[in-house]
Design a protein around this nucleic acid. Sequence first.
RNA 1: CGGAGUGUAGCGCAGUCUGGUAGCGCACCUGGUUUGGGACCAGGGGGUCGAAGGUUCGAGUCCUUUCACUCCGACCA
Length: 574
Amino acid sequence: MRFSEAFIYTLKEAPSDAVLPSHIYLIRGGFVQSVGAGLYNFLPLGKRVLDKVRTVIKEELDNAGCQEVDLAFVTPSELWKESGRYEKYGKELLRFKDRKDAEYVLGPTHEEMMVNLARAYLKSYKQLPVNLYQIKTKFRDEIRPRFGLMRGREFLMKDGYSFHKDEESMIKDGFEKMEKTYSKIFNRLGLDFRIVEADSGAIGGSGSKEFMVLAESGEDTIVVCEECEYGANIEAAVRANPKAPHEANEEYEKPEMVFGKFLTPDVKTIEELSEFFLIDPYYLLKVVAKKALYDGGEEKIVLFGIRGSDELQEVKACNAVDANELADVSDEELENAGLVPGFMGPKDLPKEITFIADKLLEGEESVIAGANEKDYHFVGLNLKELNLTYKDLAEVKEGDACAKCGGKLKYTKGIEVGHIFQLGTRYSAPMKAEFLDENGKSKPYVMGTYGIGVSRLLAAIIEQHHDEKGPIWTKESAPFDLEIIVSNIKKEQELQTGKKLYEELSKNFDVLLDDRKERFGFKMNDYELLGIPYAIIVGKKIQDGIVEIVDRKTLQKQEVKADEAVEKIKGLLA
RNA sequence: CGGAGUGUAGCGCAGUCUGGUAGCGCACCUGGUUUGGGACCAGGGGGUCGAAGGUUCGAGUCCUUUCACUCCGACCA
């Protein structure tokens, strides 16, 4: 491709709202154009990178025995009602009607469509397992799209689905195989990533793992162990039960409490309470109130009880009450429900209020908790007498102990580029997608589902590979393998040599020839902004038969004889 | 959803307080000079100032409504 004819337009300035390097460089380099909240046009350069990434994904999946399909983007609401996700998926699902008033949604993911496809053909256990995938535009009406391609509303995703006769096959032929295949894909793309345990979110199902590209700008907090391989999204992270202060620290005496109701005027927060009783927050019961939202607009106030030394992990809490979503609840709403903000606790609650306690509180015989009465707390409350429900609700903190090895846990940030799920029969059962087993018995498929954020990968690659000049594309993701820069096109010898190299190298590589009527510095800056792995500069030294090879990563220039440049480049790009 | 902010040329911005014929830089077009690190000179094209309504002799500027976009928050009992 000749630069002088290419639809490549770089910008000196980025839009003021672009903060992340990936966002800035994608726009400045002319890879994408922003058209609206979370919507982007891919320009030729961006499209090239997208195709490169897509090729890597396709090659590895096809190698692993998956087959590519392409399903309709517009999907009938009927299917979503069948699976029970029409409500559950919430506002991110863009719904609309056609001229006949039939309801549709734009596919945010395609479990329903894929199950619908499979059940039409896969009737016998002999046909299984099957793994189908597509690389297709998805639409999710995100609350807050941001960071360029990192979190768009319209984005390119690879979504794959596997169908199996039983759990064992799903894990072996689906889940574990995809875990290996995904690792190959991200390695080929040159990414430093970590596989972590995750929450399954709106997709549902049991086990799930995320592929996290480690980057400061990542939106997800992941918990990793300093000693062992354990890693998990904070939404799903677990820890060894923390020790009570009197167990961990010999000088700290276990507080003795006699049950009773105490006047605690205006003492509302855990901090105030801790000071009032001169006691470690560990022995206090913190109550967090939320509004749980369910299908059909049903709302329920739920109280979550955790130790005062812990924070509530909202995703865990949401899962604990099987809600679609948790929302904040105002003091007024609490009061209307017969609750006293600041003095809420598990004992003497209004009947219709649900109370869930963190598992760390199970068996606790003596805590301080709100008395559900203004200005009063219970001291020495025995939770064993209350018949509470216990779930894992607390958020793992940095410094907590690893549940696997006891090592120290710490936080790090990651960009979720892949997510694999063990779905089981979450979709096949309600959608009656069944096959006949060896005994002629009808059974729903056991499924797995596997996603890769293809457009997000472009952002992730840049977040991990860039410098102050621009992106540094990895070999398998670069829009071109090589750029040839003719320093001054008015110098006949420079231009001719450039063209000759271009023709020769184009036989084996994607080459961009910068033959624009611009000054050298201008072209160099553009080269750096495009992030192409190597460049050959044909300039002044051509008089002595010398050209320079530039390595984008190091920006080091290396002089070579013009007639040896082709071989040299072949070696570098091999 | 809550809070804050911004909409003026393709991009980045000034002008709005104090109403009086819409400006700057980049990019673009023409001519010339320049050519190894984002050149310079001269000339030029391009904007119903987010939209609707109102006040006024006169509105980018004041008032009302509305739309869009961006940022921050979602942690509290």
